[in-house]
């Protein structure tokens, strides 16, 4: 026997969660872009896409976020903190690669300094993931040893039934069980089985790539210049990435008052490592692309025992010059 949530009951569930004070968020197809956004009814959600254009990351780590307001007076400096408002929410219809992206970043945000902005939002969010029954040419979760029904970072995993009729429910955490207790009246016992997950072909051998990256002789390999010659140095790959997490802290205002903000930053930019002296240790685009790959598959796993890539493929999908992690690791596999 399986437990099923039928699609025609989803609107009732959305209403139930909302009346319990939760914001309901899910994949929404906008006029020109898809993203995870707050909805008022189930009909506003869109489950047909492979994955939204924008990742789930920004709901936990927004592109720009105020941290504190400062006012400098004659004898004192007044500050007022901004912290995210307490806002319980349920994200219904996350993709497994987006949910696991959050789990990948958890150790980073909690390593030496516990990032309260990140963890407050993490603790208040229930992540309901839907296993993938379709993929496109850029999906590469299996190459990262993940899967279209990966449960990492999820509180509930749903497996679609045929004809969009609903989902088989697998609760994974207490937080997930609690959220689904609220809608238990809409969950039916049944002997139906879910659709199989999509077959995502493996595009490169991760172990071969990691071994090559870990070899210090390859740091200065000619490969880096060749593979990144066409990189134009924008941040589209890093900003759409569900795991890229670099930020900059900026004061906006004047000498006497202003707001300190936390803004996304990217290793693709020359300015990212520019020293005050004018010297730049990553002076060329190839050094910057090498850093991105090394960080994801060598330095990050060296520190946190997990690769900083969940295989969503957005970097390749959106790249203006058709580059991306997939091509780079495929080429490394061939070396």
């Amino acid at each position: 026997m399986t437990r099923i949530l039928f699609s025609d009951k989803l609107d009732n569930c959305v209403a139930k969660w909302r009346s319990a004070g939760m914001t309901v968020i899910g994949p929404v197809q906008g006029e020109s872009l898809s993203s995870y956004a707050a909805v008022e009814k189930a009909g506003d959600l869109s489950f047909g896409m492979v994955l939204p254009d924008r990742s789930l990351k920004e709901l936990f780590f927004p592109q720009t976020e105020p941290m504190l307001r400062y006012t400098i007076k004659k004898n004192e400096i007044e500050t007022a903190d901004f912290t995210p408002p307490a806002a319980p929410r349920i994200i219904f219809g996350a993709r497994p690669c987006d949910a696991s992206g959050l789990a990948i970043d958890d150790p980073l945000f909690g390593w030496d300094y516990k990032d309260e902005y990140w963890f407050q939002r993490r603790n208040e969010s229930v992540i309901v993931t839907i296993a993938c029954t379709k993929a496109d040419d850029f999906c590469m979760c299996t190459s990262l040893k993940q899967a279209p029904d990966c449960t990492k970072g999820s509180d509930v995993l749903l497996r679609p039934l045929d004809n969009n009729r609903g989902w088989v429910v697998e609760e994974l955490t207490d937080r997930g069980r609690e959220a689904f207790t609220l809608i238990s009246e809409h969950i039916k016992e049944s002997d139906e089985t879910a659709l199989p997950t999509v077959e995502v072909p493996e595009k490169f051998n991760l172990d071969t790539c990691v071994a090559w990256l870990q070899n210090p002789d390859n740091f200065d390999s000619k490969f880096w210049k060749e593979i990144s010659m066409r990189c134009i140095g924008c941040a589209s790959c890093t900003y759409l990435c569900p795991t890229c997490h670099c930020f900059d802290i900026q004061d906006e205002g004047d000498t006497y008052s202003g707001i300190r903000r936390k803004n996304w930053d990217s290793c693709s930019f020359a300015l990212f490592t520019m020293h005050t002296s004018g010297h730049n240790p990553r002076a060329t685009q190839s050094a910057r692309w090498r850093q991105r790959i090394m960080h994801k598959f060598n330095y990050f796993p060296g520190k946190f025992s997990v690769n900083s890539c969940s295989g969503c493929g957005r970097c390749s999908r959106q790249c203006p010059v058709d580059m991306g992690i997939t091509e780079t690791l495929q080429e490394i596999s061939k070396l």
């Binding site: 592109q63 134009i232 140095g233 924008c234 941040a235 589209s236 900003y239 996304w264 990217s266 203006p320």
Partner: peptide, 12 residues
């Protein structure tokens, strides 16, 4: 409102 300042427009 959708701009994320990735500067892809500039770089391209």
């Amino acid at each position: 409102s959708r701009c994320i300042k990735c500067y892809a427009c500039r770089q391209a």
